[in-house]
């Protein structure tokens, strides 16, 4: 269980001279699924990547404002980025397992963090695969290459890999956009289960998906947070005309 909100205060971000996030403030609740929606280039993925400092890897990025998690500012230069990324796991649009066995993919994180006990590692792998709803499908083939799995299975493997280091927060950037409908349904089912233990923040272009799985929805447009409310409100009776235009398909 996580207990802390993720509080973003007046967050702005520039890529060189272009402003990608403009004074975003929102309070993300623990153990809930928050969906970030908006047209391409609206800042939602940039925002997501702020939460585990992934934007640090991009040259010329500058931020203002703060993201407070458990009393500390994630964006502070003093923040321990390695520890932050253990606590804030990430799953990408295109699954990216390591060219290793299923077992070693999951064990990679704990091993990197110094775990050597083999029995304990096996437990961690089994536990992570169970949480990612993949265990039953792979338990007899843990030594096979991760690439032998289907796309949907590889994506759930990546989620299991993220879970193996016991994060508090899971960031997902379009995790289902390259999956078939059945794999998507399994992933969505998994996400609604994961929120019992984790805070989930998901970027999606699929608005029905956001409506199905999230508790809260944030609508971004041109770097600004236009509206943030319960998912039910956003999809039935949004307060802002730009939100209404977007969710009903009246943009552009």
């Amino acid at each position: 269980m996580v207990s802390s909100n993720i509080e973003c205060n007046n967050l702005s971000l520039w890529y060189e001279d272009s402003k990608a996030l403009d004074d975003v403030s929102m309070n993300i609740k623990p153990n809930r699924v928050t969906a970030l929606i908006g047209p391409s280039g609206c800042g939602k993925s940039t925002f997501l990547r702020c939460i585990n400092r992934m934007n640090d890897e991009i040259a010329g990025v500058r931020t203002e404002g703060s993201i407070i998690f458990e009393g500390e500012d994630i964006l502070s230069p003093k923040a321990d980025v390695v520890e932050l990324r253990r606590r804030v796991g990430m799953v990408f649009q295109r699954w990216n397992p390591f060219p290793k066995s299923i077992f070693d993919n999951i064990a990679y994180g704990p091993r990197t963090h110094g775990m050597k006990d083999k029995a304990r590692l096996s437990e961690i792998v089994e536990d992570a695969l169970k949480k990612a709803a993949l265990w039953d499908e792979v338990k007899d083939r843990l030594r096979e290459s991760a690439f032998s799995l289907s796309g949907g299975q590889q994506q759930r493997l990546c989620i299991a890999r993220a879970l193996a280091v016991e994060p508090d927060i899971l960031l997902m950037d379009e995790p289902a956009s390259a999956l078939d409908p059945i794999s998507t349904a399994k992933l969505e089912e998994l996400i609604t289960k994961l929120k019992q233990r984790y805070t989930v923040i998901i970027v999606t272009h699929n608005m029905q998906q956001a409506a199905r799985i999230s508790d809260f929805t944030a609508f971004f447009y041109m770097g600004k947070l236009i509206e943030f409310d319960t998912t039910n409100t956003i999809f039935t009776n949004p307060g802002e005309e730009r939100t209404e235009a977007y969710i009903t398909g009246r943009f552009g």
């Binding site: 608005m207 029905q208 409506a211 999809f235 039935t236 009776n237 209404e244 969710i247 009903t248």
Partner: peptide, 9 residues
Amino acid sequence: RQPAGSDLR
């Protein structure tokens, strides 16, 4: 069409 917002209403 999976309508939302005012279209749904």
